[in-house]
Simulated scan of single mutants.
Amino acid sequence: MKRIITFGEIMMRLNPEGYLRFVQAEKFEATYAGGEANVAVSLANYGMDAAFVTKLPAHEIGQCAVNELRRFGVDTRSIVRGGERLGLYFVEKGASQRASKVIYDRAGSAIAKAVPEDFDWAKIFEGADWFHFTGITPALGGALPEICLEACKQAKAQGLRVSCDLNYRKKLWSREEAGRVMAGLMPYVDVCIANEEDAKDVFGIAAENTDLNAGKVDQQGYISVARQLTERFGFKKVAITLRGSISASDNDWAGMLYSDGKACFSPTYRVHIVDRVGGGDSFGGGLIYALLSDYDDQKAINFAVAASCLKHSVEHDFNLMSVAEVESLAGGNASGRVQR
Rank of each mutant, 00 (worst) to 15 (best):
K200D: 14
K156P: 01
W130P: 00
I205G: 08
L172M: 12
N167T: 04
R161Y: 09
L144T: 07
E208L: 12
F133D: 00
C164A: 13
E177H: 13
L149S: 11
F203C: 04
H132G: 05
P187L: 05
Q154P: 00
K123S: 14
E177L: 13
P145C: 12
L160E: 03
R161C: 05
P145E: 12
R180D: 12
G159C: 13
K123F: 05
F131S: 04
E197T: 14
C148L: 13
D120A: 14
C148W: 08
I193P: 00
C152F: 07
A194N: 01
A151E: 02
A122R: 15
K123C: 09
I193R: 01
G142W: 11
W173D: 09
R161F: 06
L172W: 07
G141N: 11
T134P: 01
I147H: 07
A207C: 07
A151H: 12
E208D: 14
A128C: 14
N167W: 06
V191A: 01
I193V: 15
A178P: 02
K200Q: 14
I136A: 07
R169H: 10
E197V: 13
A199S: 15
T134C: 15
E197D: 15
F131E: 06
D165S: 07
R169P: 02
R169G: 03
D198H: 08
A122D: 14
R169S: 04
L172F: 12
R161A: 11
W173A: 10
S163T: 08
S174N: 06
L149H: 14
P187Q: 10
P145K: 08
K171M: 13
I193H: 04
E126F: 04
E126W: 03
W130S: 03
Q154W: 01
W130G: 01
C192V: 12
Q158W: 02
D165M: 03
G179L: 12
E146R: 15
A178W: 05
E146Y: 05
A139W: 08
Y188V: 04
G159R: 11
A139E: 06
